[in-house]
C-alpha cells in the first residue's frame, strides 16, 4: 500500500501544496484533512485525475465532536473502481456548520448530504434540495448531535422524553433554507 499512498500524497501535494493535511494510512484507507473551502475542488480533482480516478462516492458522514472544538465534521469516503483504493477526506466545521455541497461532482451525494443535514444540521451550501430526510418536516433540533437526548424531548407524543424545551436554532430560522423543493437528482 505504501507505493499507492505515496503516489496519492505526491499528486495531492503537487496540486494543493500545504492546503491538504495528511492523516496517514490505516485499515486500508488513506486519510487526509481538507478545509471546507477546498472540498469541492479536491473532490473534483480526485474524481477526474487520470491516475487517481476516485469515481465512486461511498459515503458522506456527519460527526459531532462535542464538546471538542471545532465541533462538527463532514467525512467523505471515496473509492476508486479502477485502482481499488479508498480515501477518506475529513473536513472540520465550526458552529454553525457549513460546507459546500458536492452534489455537482456526484449525484449520489444528494441523499447523503440531506441525511447529514437532518441528523447534524450541517448546511451543505449549493445543495439543490436540502430538506430533512428521515425526520418529518417541522421537527426541531438535530437528533444525532451529542447534546440531543437519546429519547428525545418530552411532549404529548413522547411522554418518556427528557425534560426541557427543544433547542432552538435562531440562526437557522432566519436563514434562507430551500424548503419544499422536489428531489429529482436524475434531471
Amino acid at each position: 500500500m505504501s507505493a499507492e499512498t505515496s503516489l496519492i500524497r505526491s499528486l495531492i501535494a503537487e496540486r494543493f501544496g500545504e492546503a491538504i493535511e495528511e492523516l496517514g494510512f490505516s485499515h486500508g484507507v488513506y486519510a487526509f484533512a481538507a478545509s471546507p473551502d477546498r472540498i469541492v475542488e479536491l473532490c473534483r480533482f480526485l474524481k477526474e485525475h487520470p491516475t487517481l480516478r476516485f469515481d465512486f462516492l461511498s459515503d458522506i458522514c456527519g460527526v459531532d465532536h462535542y464538546p471538542e472544538m471545532p465541533r462538527y465534521e463532514a467525512v467523505y469516503h471515496l473509492y476508486s473502481l479502477p485502482n481499488k483504493w479508498r480515501v477518506r477526506i475529513k473536513c472540520r466545521l465550526g458552529d454553525p456548520p457549513r460546507v459546500p455541497s458536492v452534489t455537482g461532482v456526484w449525484r449520489t451525494a444528494n441523499w447523503h448530504e440531506r441525511e447529514a443535514w437532518d441528523m447534524y444540521g450541517i448546511r451543505f451550501e449549493g445543495h439543490p434540495d436540502l430538506r430533512r430526510i428521515y425526520m418529518w418536516e417541522g421537527f426541531e433540533g438535530f437528533p444525532q448531535r451529542k447534546d440531543f437526548p437519546l429519547r428525545g424531548y418530552k411532549d404529548k407524543l413522547n411522554p418518556f422524553g427528557a425534560e426541557g424545551p427543544p433547542p432552538t436554532q435562531p440562526d437557522l430560522a432566519t436563514e434562507d433554507i430551500p424548503q419544499g423543493g422536489r428531489s429529482t437528482p436524475g434531471t
Binding site: Y134, W136, Q144
Partner: peptide, 15 residues
Amino acid sequence: RVDPHIGYLHRGTEK
C-alpha cells in the same frame, strides 16, 4: 416528477 419520502421506519440505529 417524483418526490420520495422515507424515514417511516427510522429507528435511530446510529444514535
